[in-house]
């Protein structure tokens, strides 16, 4: 009886240990970050690691401004998204995507982006532009150093 409880407790601890290991797992070449796209507000800078090889920033950008057609760009990086769908269903009337250009972005929509930088040095800037008139919506500074990869 006691052996049964002990065995159960050991496996609970093993589960907790595995969870703690997974939660603490970090890599140099991939990190999450999130931003809020809002016009006229100074954006909080993003901190990415000092890793100098190919680095992927998984950026979750939440649209909290009115422009529906926007472009997201950053010098020296390739921007990818998993939109649009491979086979677009007839009932899917939402966003169109081409590279970093998004058309028909609803207010509150989160855009999942991958910013891929190869051997980038120094800091950079993400520019978010209103495609309807080319005006700048927001600029986000990307700094190197302590990461802020708090997960969304």
């Amino acid at each position: 009886m006691h052996a049964g409880y002990l065995k159960t407790a050991l496996f609970v601890l093993a589960g907790i240990f595995t969870g703690v290991m997974f939660a603490g797992f970090k890599v140099q070449d991939y990190q999450h970050a999130s931003i809020v796209i809002s016009k006229g507000e100074a954006a909080k800078p993003l901190y990415v690691s000092d890793y100098s090889g190919r680095q992927v920033i998984a950026l979750s950008a939440k649209n909290l401004q009115g422009a529906k057609d926007i472009e997201i760009k950053m010098d020296g990086t390739v921007i990818q998204s998993w939109y649009p769908p491979v086979v677009k269903m007839p009932y899917n009337k939402r966003m169109d995507v081409e590279g970093g250009r998004f058309r028909g972005v609803d207010f509150g929509k989160r855009l999942p982006l991958y910013l891929i930088a190869d051997n980038r040095k120094g800091c950079g800037e993400i520019e978010i532009v209103d495609l309807s008139d080319g005006s700048l919506i927001q600029r986000v500074h990307v700094m190197r150093g302590d990461s802020n990869d708090r997960h969304h």
């Binding site: 065995k7 159960t8 407790a9 050991l10 496996f11 609970v12 601890l13 093993a14 589960g15 907790i16 240990f17 595995t18 969870g19 703690v20 997974f22 939660a23």
Partner: peptide
């Protein structure tokens, strides 16, 4: 047992 331990974390 393992599952609930992991789930807590």
């Amino acid at each position: 047992a393992f599952r609930y331990g992991y789930f807590i974390v």
